[in-house]
Design a protein around this nucleic acid. Structure first.
Lengths: 337, 337
DNA sequence: CCCGCGATTGGGAGCGCTCCCAAAACCTCG
DNA sequence: CGAGGTTTTGGGAGCGCTCCCAATCGCGGG
């Protein structure tokens, strides 16, 4: 592995000039540029990142933090797609991504490591949990960061999110419009902001149609298939006409419970989800759900973060990405008309 | 963020002594150690990684390369669990992980970046495809690396894998022992080594029982749910008694095709898979499959790699992890006894 | 033909750490 | 009490790059 200095010698110019060439500094004459580039290519020269970082103070590396204490949740395709979105946006901008799956036992130590080690120029945090310590730590540090999913209490930070409340309201309203009146919900964990927001949307949808809330029809889940399954079983005795399940993996579990109980969807119970994971299009029956642009959440977070790093500004970014109601068969058809 | 030098001044010792303290060098007297540590903690000092890397030549960062040209495949829980295994082993050893999802269009450029940028001390590669360029490139570079999954042609490299041939043979043999004779297979992509190996195991199982191979019963899939679905549909006309599906996601697809065709499992067609993804325990019926220790594949790869980095030795590591036949309901019960 | 100015180029001074060697401090024991 | 050894400690010399400033080059106009 040659060094800058060697490339300089080899091409008969100074260290500085080579540095200019590899950094696309315009203050280089065309012949010099070509001469140096030829040598660079010939020796397949790659600048040493550590040296560059030390000298320049930045690394072109972003951290991606997924505080999934619950490894069960990490099986959710959501994270996979998110990682993909982050990764591809980083590639496109010539950044690398450092992945931190924050296991709870390491969390404290880890946060310090993340913030202080100078390894990353910024971090993307997939925030989920309400009392997340990392966000405060991030605020204290001066490291640029983007949250994926808004934070419940700290609002003066940058984030990208979907409108969970409105989207949940939309899909529940769809159910109501189809004529169902006894609509239950399996919520997400209520210590997760998206869990709370989707629940909120459910409440709003019912309320705005003057339907009073029946707490018997509300069961808290945990976003997992298993959680959906058990929640649905508990709901069975209440014989709801329709159920808004706050995540597709839970909806899969709910379907399983329903099938086991010999009930058919949507004839006996209509079901809708939230997320539109790949499996939802292929379930039996295909699931009506809200499509989140998960990949885009990741890539937008990265793009915004990079912009923030390279052109620091004071103003806050609160980006809301659109969702889409995807109507399939699990919600049944209009009962009224 | 204080520097080493500042901590040294603050604690009244030299730069070198502080360096020794933070690196746990035994050549430090106890009082000095305590004195320095107090200051380190008080100022929450974290050594600058870039500087440390530049000076020491290593980074305590491992690269994880997943050359999933096919993003479809990345939805497979396999990778998620693999990433988790790698990540947690890294955490445990105080290493960080740099994630590279190698999208095909970036591949060439990326490989160079990975190998030369000096950002990582070693890489773990989830190798899948037969004609993978990265492995050769890795061999040329002097970077330590571990493959997850053996390479079809390059054998003098370190890898950790399961015995796909033997495991496939085991599960197909199980099918044969149950009394099925007309056993089909939906293979993985045959440009993936695991696809080939599992197919091989299928052939061996039949052959060793003197059953001659019927090419009509062999359909190539691609490890995805979709692929399994379409492959099963093609297989339907051959009316197999049982099918060995080379991956669980494909088995899910095959089940879907079977259900659609109104056939029941295992009464009309028995089905077995390979992988034991979480969903397999909950499918209808639960899937008989081979359990791979995916998490462990990741963590063993990391541990071995770290050992390789820290204690370089010449000898090759070819680690084979055990699999387990998990019998559930999809394979039916003994037809003979 | 010389001055002045913009476009190029060169070189010094670090960035914050590790590593090595030598100096200092401390023991042990004859 | 001092030689000789063993710990500890200190400081210089980089690691390979960027950044800044000064030096050089080239060229048009007076």
């Amino acid at each position: 592995m040659p060094t800058l200095e060697e490339i300089a010698k080899l091409s008969g110019v100074s260290r500085s000039t080579v540095s200019r060439v590899i950094n696309n500094d315009p203050h280089v004459s065309d012949p010099t540029y070509k001469k140096v580039m030829a040598v660079v290519r010939e020796f397949n020269y790659q600048p040493n990142i550590a040296a560059r970082s030390l000298a320049s103070g930045h690394t072109r590396v972003l951290g991606l933090v997924i505080p999934t204490g619950v490894s069960k949740l990490f099986t959710d395709p959501y994270f996979q797609i998110l990682i993909q979105g982050v990764s591809s946006a980083c590639n496109a901008h010539d950044y690398s991504v450092m992945l931190w799956l924050a296991e709870p036992e390491y969390e404290r130590r880890m946060i310090k490591k993340i913030l202080n080690n100078g390894l990353v120029d910024g971090v993307v945090v997939s925030s989920m949990v309400v009392d997340d310590v990392i966000v405060e730590a991030l605020v204290e540090s001066e490291l640029p960061f983007m949250l994926i999913g808004r934070h419940p209490t700290v609002t003066d930070v940058n984030y990208v999110d979907v409108d969970n409340v409105a989207s949940a309201k939309e899909i529940v309203t769809h159910l109501l419009r189809l004529g169902y009146t006894r609509v239950a919900t399996i919520t997400g964990p209520l210590n997760a902001i998206s869990g709370v927001d989707r629940y909120e949307g459910y409440i709003e949808a019912l309320s705005s149609r003057g339907i009073k809330i029946d707490t018997g029809l509300i069961v808290e889940g945990d976003f997992s298939e298993e959680g959906g399954y058990y929640a649905m079983r508990r709901l069975l005795s209440q014989s709801p006409q329709a159920v808004f399940v706050a995540s597709d993996p839970m909806a899969m579990g709910a379907m399983r419970a329903l099938h086991e109980a010999g009930l058919s969807i949507p004839e006996d119970v209509a079901l809708v989800g939230f997320d539109d994971i790949p499996a939802s299009a292929r379930s039996n029956p295909p699931l009506t759900t809200i499509r989140q642009p998960v990949h885009m959440l990741g890539s937008v977070a990265v793009k915004t973060l990079i912009d923030l790093i390279e052109h620091p500004v004071a103003d806050l970014h609160h980006i809301i990405l659109p969702t889409q109601l995807v109507i399939r068969e699990s919600c049944g058809v209009d009962l009224i008309s």
